[in-house]
Structure formats: structure tokens, C-alpha cells
């Protein structure tokens, strides 16, 4: 239950990065969850101290969450759809988060650079999304938590015809706010 509340709040936070919800609303249930995870039972005897700890833990959880969400893309070489070693940590972080938050659902969105036909690239993006999902599931996420889609070359992050640009477009995004 606590986890659910936390997830919902975090999702709200993610969905509304531009707005800042009142601090208490975030901190309170988040702290409950955090304390369940990190503190010995009955440790909240001294109310003031506990409140401080809760606030700090909540902040830490929020920071960890923000850090996780900041790295939600994995990248691929040209015409390659296998998840790369360089992204193992990103995959594991999201897999662990999804494993510990079974109610959270994500969309993995595959993309490709423009060096192919739009239809081939749609297929390639789908493969990248599927492989990213497979890696997340191997890391502990549940199959039913993850939907895969492809945008192919249709939604480039960068539109110049050069490798620096293409490298940014060959990616899969783990999108928490799309569901």
C-alpha cells in the first residue's frame, strides 16, 4: 500500500516536472515507505528527530528517483538492436525499480536514425524496444509492466545528417509518464 502511494506520487512528480507540489504531500507517505525499508521497527519514538529523518529519507528517495529518471534512455550502434554493456547499469536501475514497484507500468519506446526506410526503421525501433524490455524483465521487472512501441525515425531528438545526431536518435526510452 505504501509502495503504491509512493509510486503514484512519484509518477505525479514525473508527469508534472514543471510544477512543484507542496512538500508535505510528497514527504509524508514517501517517508513512511522509506522508514519501512531502512529503519528498525519502532524507531520513531522521538517525534522531532523522526520527522527530520523522515524528511531526509524522503529527500534521498526523491533524489534517487530523480537520478533514475534522468537516465531513462539506452543507446544502440547503427543497425544494431542488442542492448549494450554501457547501458547495463541504467537497465538494472530501472529493472530493480520496476521489480520493487509492481504497480508501476512503463512504455519502452524504440527509435532509429534516418539511415533506412521509415518502415524498416519502425521495425528496428520495435526490436530495440523489445530487447530493452527483455533486459528489464531479466533484471527483475515483470513482463506485464512493460509495453513496447516504436517510433522508428519519425520522432528524431536531433535532425541533422551527422553521426553525433544519429547516435542520439538510435535509442530506446523507458517512459514512466506515458501510461
Amino acid at each position: 500500500m505504501n509502495k503504491l502511494i509512493l509510486s503514484v506520487l512519484l509518477l505525479n512528480l514525473l508527469a508534472a516536472c514543471s510544477s512543484n507540489p507542496p512538500k508535505e504531500e510528497v514527504a509524508e507517505p514517501a517517508a513512511t515507505s522509506a522508514s519501512a525499508a531502512s529503519e528498525a521497527p519502532g524507531a520513531a519514538a522521538q517525534e522531532t528527530a523522526a520527522a527530520d529523518t523522515r524528511a531526509a529519507d524522503a529527500q534521498a528517495a526523491a533524489d534517487a528517483q530523480a537520478a533514475l529518471m534522468e537516465k531513462n534512455s539506452v543507446y544502440f550502434p547503427f543497425d544494431v538492436d542488442a542492448v549494450q554493456d554501457a547501458d547495463r547499469e541504467t537497465i538494472m536501475n530501472h529493472a530493480e525499480y520496476l521489480a520493487s514497484h509492481p504497480d508501476v507500468k512503463v512504455r519502452v519506446e524504440g527509435n532509429a536514425d534516418e539511415r533506412g526506410s521509415s518502415e524498416y526503421n519502425l521495425g528496428l525501433g520495435q526490436r530495440r524496444a523489445n530487447n530493452t524490455k527483455r533486459a528489464l524483465v531479466l533484471g527483475g521487472a515483470s513482463d506485464s509492466q512493460i509495453e513496447t512501441v516504436s517510433y522508428g525515425e519519425e520522432k528524431p531528438r536531433c535532425s541533422d545528417h551527422n553521426e553525433a545526431c544519429w547516435a542520439q536518435n538510435r535509442r530506446a526510452d523507458i517512459n514512466y509518464s506515458a501510461q
Binding site: 518502415e119 521495425g123 520495435q126 516504436s150
Partner: peptide
């Protein structure tokens, strides 16, 4: 279908459409 549905192409008699689905995994 789940995943991508794409690349429609009509048969010459107009009765059928070939298309690409990833519902079974690959395109």
C-alpha cells in the same frame, strides 16, 4: 494489434491488404 501495425499495401483486386505486424515479436 499490440506493438507496431504498419506498411499497408493493397492487392491489385482491392480485396486484400498486406501489412506488417509485430504482434508475434518481429516485424
Amino acid at each position: 494489434f499490440p506493438g507496431s501495425n504498419s506498411a499497408p499495401a493493397w492487392s491489385p483486386d482491392g480485396r486484400q491488404i498486406a501489412m506488417v505486424l509485430t504482434r508475434d515479436g518481429e516485424s
